[in-house]
Design a binder for these strands. Structure first.
Ligand code: MN
Ligand code: MN
Ligand code: ZN
Ligand code: ZN
Lengths: 140, 140
DNA sequence: GCCGATATCAAGAATTATTCCAGTTATCGC
DNA sequence: GCGATAACTGGAATAATTCTTGATATCGGC
């Protein structure tokens, strides 16, 4: 049950600015961690994974870097119930399927051409800015 | 901008047991608060609304009563991002539309006959136990 | 109605994720 | 290089929630 790993991204391949956010050394490393292993890590997971390469990065900085990237639309913050926030570099409209037996979180998309708003009974005049959905279950 | 109020439910109309959970005086009052004003209050909202009738109810008890009712499937716990949990007595499959201009949370249902799993690209073999969705936006 | 067993409750302490703060360091434009 | 600004660090503070411990209430059997 190996979770999907992506090819490591050398620091040189991450530009020094994305969507108007200066990509400092800390932000580049954090972003690379998210791209390499897309398992929706928490801020603390990121912190532990990065300790070897940046030994004096502080957890507060991990939080503020993640927050800055979320605010600039570079990554997304994902919440499951009351658990710690998780982070995801997949910017496509998608939701999450949480496999409760393995703990693995899978990205899930709508079938082509379908939008959530089309299948819902919305209050008249509703303008949707943002959609989030989560499924919990297992893989048989 | 009056939010929907429901007819007050006298204590006598709430049975002394629901789905195997003994409905103590505290639980009855809390449940009645949820039924009367279905605006998805937080535990603290419930606590403040109940203070006049049960002046020595503790906030910890509000939390444990709500949790007991959630565990017994009498009410549902709803989370928006990292905000405090909110509680909802609507047991039908539904999601939430958060109007960001008024702060009001509307219940939203699927159009008849539609299920979220039917419109998604799920991993093969996925068995869905639970679905949650949230929309953010405004009413024009 | 009384009694021990069990469930529930109250009040405050503890926990956990996250944010704030104050001082230091890095980067930018000139 | 220099002052201004942004970013970073480490520790303290915060907020929602849970835990703990000791009281109360309720239950079933007598
Ligand atoms: Mn986290
Ligand atoms: Mn709450
Ligand atoms: Zn994702
Ligand atoms: Zn609801």
């Amino acid at each position: 049950m190996v979770s999907k790993a992506f090819k490591p991204v050398p620091a040189s391949e991450i530009p020094d600015e994305i969507s108007g956010l200066r990509m400092t050394r800390q932000r580049q490393h954090i972003y690379r961690i998210l791209l390499q292993h897309r398992d929706h890590p928490t801020a603390n997971d990121v912190f532990m994974r990065i300790k070897d390469t940046l030994p004096n990065l502080s957890l507060a900085t991990v939080y503020t870097c993640l927050d800055a990237m979320v605010k600039h639309g570079i990554i997304r913050q994902v919440n499951f119930d009351r658990g710690p926030s998780r982070f995801c570099p997949n910017l496509a409209e998608h939701g999450h399927f949480h496999d409760v037996t393995t703990g693995i979180i899978h990205d899930v998309q709508f079938r082509p051409g379908i939008h959530l708003a089309d299948v819902l009974d919305l209050p008249p005049g509703a303008i949707i800015k943002n959609v989030e959905f989560t499924l919990r279950g297992q893989l048989s």
